[in-house]
Simulated scan of single mutants.
Amino acid sequence: MAGKNNTRILMQFALLAIVLTAAIMVKEATCIPICNIDTNDLEKCRPAVTGNKPPRPGPDCCAVARSANLQCLCPYKPYLSSFGINPSRVRPLLAQCGINSIPSCF
């Protein structure tokens, strides 16, 4: 019976490894480049654009903001909330990152 249990545990472990690998592949495949930003990189800025008192953006977030084509993002502003971004917090984030040429849409 011990052999049967070991085989069962190995099969469960193998299944878990397959599921985790598939999840990683799906996450990488769902990264969509928009206006010089990969949508997965927006996660780096999420803390600075959510909540009542968001923290200052970190260096990784500011790097994402600096690489973005901000004018290109203007038509997407209504959809930012679907990525967990409060659109009214974008302008302060950009200013805190030292970005001076902020499009009027933000």
Rank of each mutant, 00 (worst) to 15 (best):
L42G: 09
D38Q: 13
V90R: 02
R91W: 09
D60P: 04
G84D: 13
P59Y: 00
L80Y: 04
T39P: 12
L93T: 08
A65I: 00
K44H: 10
R46M: 07
P87D: 10
C72G: 08
I37G: 00
P78D: 03
N36Q: 03
P75R: 11
T39A: 05
D41H: 10
P54R: 07
V49P: 05
A68P: 06
Y79N: 15
Y79P: 00
A48Q: 02
V49K: 14
Y76E: 02
N52A: 15
V64M: 08
P92F: 01
K53M: 10
C74G: 12
C72P: 09
C72R: 05
R46S: 13
Y76K: 04
L93M: 14
N36E: 06
G51D: 10
P87G: 11
C74E: 10
N52D: 13
N86C: 00
P54V: 02
P59N: 07
R66C: 01
S88G: 14
P75Y: 01
C62A: 00
P54E: 03
P75H: 08
V49M: 15
G58M: 03
P54L: 00
A48G: 09
A65S: 08
T39F: 09
T39M: 10
L42N: 05
D38I: 06
I85Y: 07
P57A: 02
S81F: 08
I37V: 10
D38R: 12
S82Y: 12
R91D: 07
L70I: 07
C74Q: 09
C45T: 05
T39G: 06
R91C: 08
D41M: 06
I37D: 03
C74R: 05
N40K: 13
C62W: 00
L42A: 08
P75N: 14
S82G: 07
L73T: 14
N40Y: 13
F83G: 07
C72K: 11
V64Q: 10
K77Y: 04
N40W: 00
N52P: 13
N86W: 07
R56N: 03
L73P: 09
I85C: 05
T50D: 05
G84A: 13
P92R: 08
L70K: 12
L80V: 04
D41Q: 15
R89H: 07
D60E: 12
P47L: 12
C72I: 06
A68F: 01
A63M: 03
E43N: 12
I37L: 02
N36W: 01
P92A: 12
P75C: 05
K44Y: 04
Q71R: 14
L73W: 01
A65T: 05
P59K: 01
I37P: 01
L93A: 14
N36I: 11
V64S: 06
N36Y: 08
G51A: 02
D41A: 11
S67C: 08
Q71Y: 12
P59D: 02
Q71V: 15
A65P: 12
D38S: 14
E43D: 15
P55I: 15
P59I: 04
C62I: 06
N40G: 10
K77E: 10
C74H: 05
S82W: 07
Q71I: 10
Y79G: 14
N40H: 13
V64D: 11
P87I: 14
R89F: 02
T50P: 09
I37R: 07
P87T: 09
G51T: 07
Y76D: 07
T39D: 03
K53C: 01
P92D: 10
V64A: 13
R89E: 00
K77F: 11
R46C: 01
